[in-house]
Design a binder for these strands. Structure first.
Lengths: 157, 157
DNA sequence: TGTTTTTCCATGATATTCCATAGATATCCA
DNA sequence: TGGATATCTATGGAATATCATGGAAAAACA
């Protein structure tokens, strides 16, 4: 599985082109589709990004839930219907549509934020705020990464 | 699992380069990624270091959360977004970014402190203080090393 | 044919690799 | 045992390669 680490800020030019950080490209290098899948976050003013293979896995996961539950239907609609598949160009760049740029306010710079299995793309200033928030929550509520065998699902919303 | 032992102080040159102690490199020698992952400590003015494989494991564990749960997002933002992956150069050195140098005040020397599965990187003076502090706390509160019964598999020696 | 999209190329900045040296440690052999 | 030699480690500097970025050329489209 590709692992996205660290944060990189790159320029978005007037055509919407932006370089995917080389470390992220390296994480994608063994993928069959050379590019990323993006869609608008449901929780923040940012974009969510994945390797294409991870989207396939996501599909399988959703399949494990109740196929006709409205929750899952909403989620699937929000994710798959929204998702765009962006190939890397010869120089390692992707092109963000005006809609994506506008949604995440990426008029000038885009911060690629590695979150392990996925990544996000933020307006750098908005990211700063988000980071402070996340750190606060983690230390206040004592969140830790659970051990592997007691996988949890559910508790969301 | 690589095991980091002992304390070594090395020079940080003006480009941020610093030799990883040879003992640490030996501990990493059987790893697929020849390098380390660093991030800012949440508790001290020092850097925390791991083998890349440890991050992979964290990534898998994190994958057990709901993909868009706020817990997953907060944790990933606090951990993966902050982490940097640093390869060893041909001479066994890593390059610390200005941000990392500044955070841990590593302008001149860096003390690599082995803590078993992980290690820390300290400003040597700050480390001295920290050690005195730790000793004081231990003797004052009568802290002892707990018995072995909650040891996880694999952690002998 | 005018417009948009994609590919290609140039460049400065940054990062990575390579080489040289010196000190410390270990090894070897008489 | 003792001295000489080799090896490893840490460190500095220089050469080389890569990355991010802007713009132009080529191709696709309407």
């Amino acid at each position: 599985m590709p692992l996205f680490l660290s944060t990189h800020i790159n320029k978005v030019d007037k055509k919407g082109r932006v370089s995917v950080p080389s470390g992220f490209r390296a994480a994608l290098s063994d993928q069959s589709f050379q590019g990323v899948v993006l869609f608008r976050s449901n929780n923040f003013a940012c974009l969510e990004g994945f390797a294409y293979s991870y989207m396939e896995e996501l599909g399988e996961r959703l399949d494990n839930f109740d196929l006709f539950s409205s929750e899952q239907d909403d989620l699937a609609t929000a994710i798959f219907a929204e998702a765009v598949q962006l190939p890397l160009d010869g120089d390692g760049r992707i092109i963000l549509s005006p809609e994506l740029v506008e949604f995440a306010a990426l008029n000038d710079k885009a911060a690629f934020v590695g979150l392990g299995p996925k990544f996000q793309i933020w307006n750098p200033q908005a990211l700063d705020k988000r980071r402070i928030e996340a750190r606060k929550t983690v230390s206040k509520s004592g969140l830790t990464v659970p051990k592997n065998n007691k996988a949890k699902a559910g508790a969301h919303d």
